[in-house]
Simulated scan of single mutants.
Amino acid sequence: MSIKVTVVVQKDENWYVAKCIENNVASQGKTIEEALNNLREALELYYENEKPDISYYQTFITTMEVAL
Rank of each mutant, 00 (worst) to 15 (best):
V66W: 03
Y57L: 12
E44D: 14
L45Q: 05
N24V: 03
E65C: 00
Y57C: 09
M64H: 12
T59M: 08
A42T: 04
N38V: 10
G29T: 04
A35K: 00
R40G: 06
Q28F: 06
V66F: 05
E44V: 07
M64T: 15
Q58T: 14
V66Y: 04
S55A: 12
Y56T: 11
S27C: 06
T31F: 03
T59E: 07
P52H: 10
E33F: 10
K19D: 02
E48L: 13
I61D: 05
Y47H: 08
E41G: 10
E44Y: 06
L45K: 08
N23A: 09
Y46I: 03
Y47T: 05
A26H: 10
Y56L: 11
A35Q: 01
I32Y: 09
N49T: 06
L45W: 08
V25F: 04
K19C: 05
I54K: 03
Y57W: 07
C20D: 02
E44N: 15
E34Q: 13
S55P: 05
N49S: 10
Y56A: 09
L68H: 09
A35T: 04
Q58K: 14
L43Q: 01
E48R: 11
Q28K: 09
A35L: 06
N49W: 12
L45M: 13
L68N: 10
G29Q: 03
T59V: 15
Q28Y: 11
A42V: 04
I61H: 08
Y57V: 10
S55K: 15
K51G: 06
T62L: 04
C20W: 02
L43Y: 02
V17R: 00
R40V: 12
S27E: 05
E50Y: 13
D53I: 13
E44H: 08
A18L: 00
I54H: 05
M64P: 05
P52V: 09
I54Y: 09
E50W: 09
E44W: 05
L68C: 08
R40E: 15
N24T: 07
V66S: 02
S55R: 13
R40I: 13
E41P: 07
L68Q: 09
N49E: 13
N23D: 11
A35Y: 00
C20N: 02
L43T: 03
A26C: 12
A18E: 00
Y56N: 14
E44C: 10
K19N: 06
A35S: 07
V17Q: 00
E65G: 01
A42R: 00
L68R: 09
L39N: 00
D53G: 11
E41Q: 15
L36D: 01
Q58N: 15
C20F: 01
A26R: 11
L45P: 01
C20I: 03
E22H: 01
A42E: 03
C20S: 02
E48F: 07
L68Y: 10
